[in-house]
């Protein structure tokens, strides 16, 4: 192997960092409703009136948060919300899709709300569809779903792996904007998995009882399992479509080092979004999840800073096809 083209060693471990990120986001979404329930107990001074199980919860959250906040009723308000719209130490951050949906529904731009979506938009312009791979709480469950489908396959149960046209999700986004404008409500949030997950976890824990969104989410899980692997993200998700469009000319891209590649096609097999790293075809759908970098046995994938993908560089120089081509 030519050491001259060796990628930076940390890129191989980014996939682990990504799983840590996804787990943290998901755990935060589970923790925040419990923290809110604890806050309501604190605000009502009702410790003596609580059930034993509620007292356990009270003690647990108090143990977790007391090193950081003095007054839980006020101090724990610093971090609130979910990935759809959140409040982070006084800064409000919203999903760009929420901004788009609200603009479509209200037919006007409310600038303070538009500004809350600015940080994700700027990050998306630089990193592409990174939200889908690194933050989205639904991705966490969808990837676990993929893993469970592999287990099902091992036990001989057939799972679906159909392929459709990836452009369908842009149509879903367009229909969503149209539907929001016609009905005058942000209906996109009803079919957008991260928004559903954030809401439903709160409903389930704090308000007691899941909503309709959970049924929809389970349907998408079944769709992924029985029809197409990661099908909802690939072909249906309106948020993914918006991020892909915003990240069309993203700066940070994964690049194949053709000198190190041996055409093993593991990257194609592992890619959750069904892209074609083996032929340098990442495109706007790539979410920089770095799963392909982590699995590459010959360190042939790395990052680069450029707004376009390479054209197909041909067979990898370590592969048999290249050896045959060589004079």
């Amino acid at each position: 192997m030519n050491t001259e083209f060796k990628p930076f060693f940390l890129w191989k471990h980014l996939n682990k960092l990504r799983w840590v990120m996804l787990s943290i986001v998901f755990l935060m979404l589970v923790y925040l409703p419990f923290a809110h329930v604890y806050q309501t107990f604190v605000a009502s001074f009702s410790y003596d009136l609580l059930d034993p199980s509620e007292k356990e919860l009270y003690d647990l959250i108090q143990m977790l948060t007391s090193p950081f906040v003095d007054d839980p009723a006020e101090g724990l308000d610093a971090i609130k919300g979910n990935t759809w719209a959140g409040n982070f130490f006084g800064y409000k951050i919203s999903d760009p899709l929420a901004v788009l949906g609200q603009i479509a529904a209200g037919m006007t731009v409310y600038w303070p709300f538009f500004l809350t979506g600015l940080i994700p938009i700027v990050l998306t312009i630089f990193f592409g569809r990174f939200f889908c791979g690194w933050i989205c709480p639904a991705t966490f469950l969808y990837e676990l779903n993929t893993i469970s489908s592999l287990w099902l396959q091992r036990f001989g149960i057939k799972v679906g792996n159909r392929r459709f046209d990836r452009r369908l999700k842009y149509l879903v986004l367009a229909v969503g904007v149209g539907v929001s404008a016609i009905t005058g409500s942000v209906l996109i949030s009803m079919i957008y998995p991260p928004a559903i997950i954030g809401r439903e976890i709160y409903f389930g824990i704090a308000l007691g009882g899941f909503g309709a969104g959970l049924v929809f989410f389970v349907l998408t899980l079944l769709f992924d399992l029985l029809v197409a692997r990661r099908g909802f993200c690939r072909y249906m998700c309106p948020g993914g479509a918006l991020y892909a469009l915003l990240g069309r000319f993203r700066l940070f891209r994964i690049k194949r080092i053709v000198e190190n590649c041996n055409d093993c096609a593991k990257c194609n097999a592992v890619c959750e979004f069904g892209l074609d790293p083996l032929r340098d075809d990442f495109g706007q759908e790539c979410n920089n999840c770095t799963a392909c970098i982590a699995i590459c046995p010959t360190d042939a994938l790395t990052f680069k800073v450029k707004i376009t993908d390479d054209v197909n560089q041909g067979p990898g120089h370590l592969g048999k096809a290249y050896q045959r081509l060589k004079p």
Binding site: V37, T40, A43, S44, G81, A98, G106, S185, S189, A206
Partner: peptide, 17 residues
């Protein structure tokens, strides 16, 4: 309804729930 994005933040911060 047009303005609300259904994020649930208001419910999540409400002290009396």
């Amino acid at each position: 309804v047009k303005a609300c994005i259904g994020c649930g933040l208001c419910g999540e911060i409400c002290p009396p729930k």
